[in-house]
Amino acid sequence: MKSNSLSRFHAQSFSDKAFDIFNYVLLGLIALCVLYPLYFIVIASFSDPVAINNGEVVFWIKGFNVTGYEKIFENTKIWRSYANTIFYTVVGTTIQIALTMMFAYPLSRKEFCLRNPLMFLAMFTMYFQGGMIPTYLWMAQLKLYNTRLVILLLPAINVFNLIIAVNYLKNNIPEELFEAASVDGLGHIQYFIKIILPLSQTIIVVLILYYGVAHWNEFMNGLIYLRDEKLYPLQLTLRGILLQNQASGLGDVDSMVEQQKAAELIKYGLIIVSTLPVLVVYPFLQKHFAKGVMIGSVKG
């Protein structure tokens, strides 16, 4: 494979070679611009905050220090919010995928008479929403305020993801399968469970990635609808810890300086703690993610 690529490269004209080299260099620079901030955050989280403020931390760790991580993991709120976020991510993603696929299937059937009106109503909500205050009052009247259910049910269906699922079912599930299933006596529910879901593994993985990342990064709904710290997701707890450690206080100069140093280390450490699980899982789902983007590019 490598020799074939080299032979094709040598067979190209000078202009084609120059164009390929330019593309490789440009894409390499873009990749460097994307990856370097992540790399800097990692080395900064283990470096001396004085070296960070002096601009000495560029490519390597300066003054190895794990104080930030020690302060982070000594806080019991971190572990509790981690458990909350895992719960919100697993249960919430399961609910969202179930509702999205159940809604997408009838919208993909041409014989469904309410297909177009329901699709219009779903897309209408992408551009026109009730707003924060009406939604807040609605959640309070439904007794969902300050409960786990508000995090799980409020974002139950994402219209963009629904459109992706509908297009996948329309373009990738042959109509002949339904005809054969009907001959065998299967109804729509049995057809959906026994045939549609097993053949929709690709789009389900894509939806897991979309919904899972959204739940893992959940912040705004928790900030608005949760008041009990025991229910806080990870991002909201990390925000509180960061603000608490950045407060200057009324102590002497030395204590204020030490507090600012600790806040600097905690800031970078919190970024690593909150993003590491997503960074670990993403490479395993990358090919499905790319395919999902292509599926969503056509809104037929």
Rank of each mutant, 00 (worst) to 15 (best):
G68T: 04
I224V: 13
L38W: 12
E74I: 11
F40Y: 14
T67D: 12
L152K: 08
L199S: 12
L186I: 03
Q129I: 02
M123D: 07
P283I: 01
E70S: 04
K170A: 00
S255F: 01
I193L: 08
P277V: 11
Q244D: 09
N4D: 14
E264Y: 10
Y191D: 04
V66F: 15
G292E: 01
Q259C: 12
T202A: 06
G130Y: 09
I208Y: 05
V25H: 03
E175V: 10
E176L: 09
H288W: 13
Q286A: 12
V150S: 08
L153K: 02
K143C: 05
Y88E: 02
V66P: 06
Q246S: 10
Y268C: 13
I295Y: 14
G28C: 11
N65E: 07
I163M: 11
S297G: 07
T147H: 06
G292M: 04
L197W: 02
Y82Q: 03
Y136R: 02
A180S: 08
P117R: 03
V213G: 05
R239H: 08
Q244L: 06
W79E: 00
A214Q: 13
Q12W: 13
Q201E: 06
I189R: 00
I203T: 12
H188K: 09
Y36P: 10
G187I: 01
T89Y: 02
L32N: 00
Y282S: 09
M220L: 13
L199D: 03
K2L: 15
T93V: 06
E258C: 09
Q12C: 11
I95Y: 02
I164S: 05
A104R: 10
L265T: 07
I43R: 13
W138N: 14
V58Y: 10
M102Q: 01
G292C: 06
K291H: 11
I61Q: 08
L234I: 01
I61K: 13
P134F: 05
L270D: 00
T67F: 07
Y145C: 04
E176R: 11
S182R: 14
Y225F: 14
Y24F: 12
I266L: 14
N221L: 14
F40D: 00
